[in-house]
Simulated scan of single mutants.
Amino acid sequence: MARTKRKVNPLAPAPVEPTTQQKIYKAGGYVRLSVEDSGKPGADTIEAQKNLVLEYIEAQADYRLRTVHL
């Protein structure tokens, strides 16, 4: 009888695909209010800018807020 090639070795475990971990980036934010814009109608406040930056970082799956300086 002719020798045949085995495609699957029943004794060897199936190869396991290596899992790749998602890269996590350390993020920080910077907010400031220009002296020229201070007090003008429609000028962003520091709190509004801070909230925008924090919401953006939290919305990104691969970002982590590193530190907060007030």
Rank of each mutant, 00 (worst) to 15 (best):
M1W: 10
R3T: 15
R3L: 11
T4K: 15
T4N: 11
K5L: 12
K5E: 11
V8R: 15
P10S: 13
P10A: 09
L11V: 08
P13Q: 15
A14P: 00
E17P: 03
P18L: 00
P18M: 03
T20G: 10
T20I: 07
Q22N: 05
Q22W: 05
I24D: 00
Y25H: 14
Y25E: 08
K26W: 01
K26E: 04
A27D: 00
Y30T: 06
V31C: 12
V31T: 08
R32I: 02
R32M: 00
R32F: 12
L33H: 02
S34C: 00
V35H: 11
E36P: 00
E36W: 09
E36C: 05
E36L: 11
D37Q: 09
S38T: 10
K40R: 13
P41M: 06
P41F: 04
G42V: 06
G42I: 01
A43V: 07
A43T: 15
A43F: 06
D44L: 11
T45L: 08
T45A: 05
T45F: 07
E47D: 14
E47F: 04
A48P: 02
A48H: 05
Q49V: 08
K50P: 01
L52K: 15
L54E: 05
L54V: 06
E58Y: 09
E58L: 08
Q60I: 10
Q60D: 00
Y63F: 15
R64P: 01
R64C: 03
R64M: 07
L65H: 01
L65F: 04
R66G: 03
H69P: 02
L70W: 12
L70F: 14
